[in-house]
Design a protein around this nucleic acid. Structure first.
Length: 223
DNA sequence: GGCCAGGACACCA
DNA sequence: TGGTGTCATGGC
């Protein structure tokens, strides 16, 4: 049982996920910030508000004041914080790349990651989501779902850091953006359907008593 | 009414 | 380096 095998089973079960749900790379970036510790549904509401208020572009967002932004993105939660974070990114993009996302993405993967992490409000997961889903560069995105599912499976420790989990995947998978794209999306889809309960659900994911695991033909003993 | 959702950061020891 | 408090809406 390896990571590619799990990927194939997840894909067979859930099908292609077509991530990221956005129209442009800029919208991916906005969405990545808005979905921080929020459901995608709420982030999508906030994006729709930005769209209808015509502040879903670099130039419009640059002109908009923070109060207008925060008012539009209320449904995503933490709206004051996230409005500031959007502004931080806009300021960074303006200053260093003249507002051109394409120029930003011409940085090599590690350079891009370092640049993004330098923006206050963009942490590891948000940076990697932007790199993978907006820039199309191969980096594995780790989120709470990834950690929950794969620590339960015994692949990584429950206390593993973001970097440790990311290394675990990237050392064992071919470095292909399409694979990383689909894998992360499938983990999210699977976890949303089967792993919501807390404390850790013993029957989650790969236990033979888990309906979803059974549907995937997984079992802990076959690991 | 409580818990959770595709985190990140400031602050502290 | 690691732990804790904070930010906040909307669905179940």
């Amino acid at each position: 049982m390896n990571l590619l095998f799990i990927f194939k089973r997840l894909k067979r079960r859930y099908g292609p996920q077509h991530w990221w749900p956005a129209k442009t790379p800029f919208e991916v970036i906005v969405g990545a910030i808005l979905t921080q510790n929020a459901s995608w549904e709420n982030a999508a509401r906030a994006i729709q508000n930005l769209r209808s208020k015509k502040i879903l572009s670099f130039s419009a967002m640059k002109k908009a004041d923070t109060a207008a932004l925060s008012s539009a993105i209320r449904p995503a939660g933490y709206f004051n914080v996230k409005a500031r974070r959007l502004k931080n990114f806009i300021g960074f993009l303006d200053k260093e790349y003249s507002g051109d996302v394409g120029r930003l993405f011409r940085e090599d993967l590690l350079g891009l990651r370092e640049k993004l992490l330098g923006v206050n409000g963009i942490g590891p997961e948000t940076a990697d989501s932007i790199i993978l889903y907006a820039a199309g560069k191969p980096i594995f995105v780790v989120d709470a779902y990834t950690k929950r599912v794969f620590s339960r499976l015994g692949f990584v420790k429950e206390t593993a850091s973001y970097g440790e989990i990311q290394d675990y995947f990237m050392k064992r998978l071919p470095r292909k953006a399409e694979l990383f794209n689909e894998y992360h999306a499938l983990i999210v889809e699977h976890a949303k359907r089967s792993c919501r309960s807390k404390p850790l659900c013993a029957s989650c994911v790969l236990s033979s008593s888990c309906a979803y695991a059974a549907s995937l033909n997984f079992s802990v003993t076959s690991l």
